[in-house]
């Protein structure tokens, strides 16, 4: 049962609008929807033996929501490990006209699905999980798909939802190519 249909509609619209902005290359506009204290991370995907141990599963859940309390455990060789300043740098890099990984700009199509959203009133936050399928064409016939899952947290600022936490888990133990796009 959808806990809050109104919230679901609001979040779906937000995610679809976000995908549209990124597909259109409107990165500065996208950044306006991001909180100043954003954390945006993507770990490398590794194929490890499954564990049913409750402690391991709990740790994975905490990692996905950014709730690891031990600072040492946050130390990783991340794919993305962003705060507002580094995201700004990445977008300004694209503006230089010399970021050859995106020259010409990739043609991207982001499909967002499996959206779930709920409010955590005691935190004042909205939690959202979703899946994303991104089709990327670099040039000519160089094209790839990226598939992933996302764990987001949003904060309401002046009535608008701002992205505060995003954890992206791609489904590729070997990435099909290096990554020059946002998820």
């Amino acid at each position: 049962m959808v806990r809050d249909p109104q919230l679901m509609l609001e979040v779906a619209e937000l995610l679809f609008r976000e995908a549209e902005l990124l597909d259109d290359g409107s990165f500065h506009e996208w950044l306006e929807g991001v909180a100043d204290d954003i954390r945006y991370v993507m770990p490398a995907t590794e194929v490890l033996p499954p564990s049913k141990e409750p402690q391991v599963l709990k740790r994975r859940e905490q990692q996905r929501w950014g709730e690891i309390d031990v600072q040492e455990e946050r130390l990783r060789f991340w794919l993305y490990d962003e705060d507002h300043n580094s995201l700004t740098m990445r977008i300004r890099r694209l503006d230089t006209g010399m970021a050859y990984a995106e020259l010409p700009e990739s043609i991207t199509s982001r499909m967002v699905t499996n959206v779930r959203a709920w409010e955590e009133p005691e935190e004042g936050l909205i939690r959202v999980t979703s899946k994303i399928l991104v089709h990327q064409v670099r040039h000519e016939d160089h094209e790839d798909f990226f598939v992933g899952r996302r764990w987001d947290k949003y904060r309401r600022v002046d009535g608008q939802l701002r992205l505060l936490w995003r954890y992206v888990e791609l489904g590729h133990p070997v990435l099909p190519r290096t990554i020059s796009i946002l998820f």
């Binding site: 993507m42 490398a44 946050r74 130390l75 990783r76 060789f77 991340w78 794919l79 993305y80 490990d81 580094s86 740098m89 990445r90 890099r93 970021a99 050859y100 990984a101 995106e102 020259l103 670099r138 160089h142 990435l175 190519r177 290096t178 990554i179 020059s180």
Partner: peptide, 26 residues
Amino acid sequence: EQMAFALSHQQAAAGVFAPDDHENFE
């Protein structure tokens, strides 16, 4: 943390260096 941050941002598969090299090699 600073060390990991710098390496991730430079040379990770999603860093700001490797994808530019990728374009050359592609």
